[in-house]
Write a protein that binds this DNA or RNA. Structure first.
Lengths: 135, 135
DNA sequence: TTTTTAGTTGTTATAATATAACACTATGTA
DNA sequence: TACATAGTGTTATATTATAACAACTAAAAA
């Protein structure tokens, strides 16, 4: 298996689960995914979690840690899940992946007090989305 | 209750649980906290979670979302849990709160594509700590 | 002082999230 | 073919977190 390859051939379960997440307008939770794919033959939590783990690993989806939910990656630059940033609306729970060259660059180069750099990061912003601000 | 006040008078349970977390060199998980405070009369998960919720709310502790664990705040500038950043070692799981004026300023002023600012953020960096880098 | 109020407590039960272990199957490659 | 690697299906279980309700407490208002 060529690790450099960008196109991963998803297996049946991975494809079913990725398609569901990809079509969704908001992040999906593991058990909600499970209920939605039971008619397609995926019966157990573990089948879902295994597919999710793999999809996260190859960067097709991201986990929103503060929500225990999963969202498809629509950011062509993050084929791997190593540098992620999201905005989360605290009212409607809308989540948007942020793709800002400035932000990525700043964080990728950030060094702590000891001068250490880190290989991955995950950033979650919270506040109100445009819609909810206007209400 | 004066919300401006910096010193919150912790209740008995909150104090027991804060002291435990504060003394710990690494983040603690809720059920590990529970086992550790059972001899002090805290018997149920909910008693722990309620104290944790309150302590997070007033900024005495922070939740490390990717680990479902809690760490005491040693950063005098974040009395409220609205702007947090951590480094997490992927080998030894050591977690350190980052307090960098530059980083805070950059993130507090960050605007997304639509020009939206957000009122809170949580950032988690992953990599190797100094010790584990040398191994 | 009495009353009110908000917040905390103790408790049982249960929901939601996630992994262990094992036997088996598919697929690519030597 | 034979081997290695990864994925599957399954049952059981571990881990993380909340619902609901009655009782108690401390501080502020009347």
């Amino acid at each position: 298996m060529n690790k450099m390859r960008k196109e991963h051939n998803l297996t049946k379960n991975q494809k079913i689960i990725f398609d569901l997440i990809d079509k969704s307008s908001q992040p999906l939770k593991a058990y909600s995914i499970l209920y939605n794919v039971q008619k397609k033959g995926i019966k157990a939590p573990l089948q879902v979690y295994r597919a999710l783990d793999k999809l996260v690993e190859i960067g097709k989806i991201h986990k929103i840690e503060s929500r225990n939910a999963f969202i498809a990656c629509h950011n062509s630059s993050c084929q791997v899940a190593k540098a992620t940033a999201f905005s989360i609306c605290e009212i409607c729970e809308k989540v948007t992946e942020i793709s800002s060259a400035g932000l990525s660059k700043y964080l990728a180069n950030f060094k702590d007090k000891d001068g250490m750099k880190y290989s991955k990061y995950n950033l979650e912003f919270f506040g109100l989305c445009k819609k909810c601000t206007l209400k």
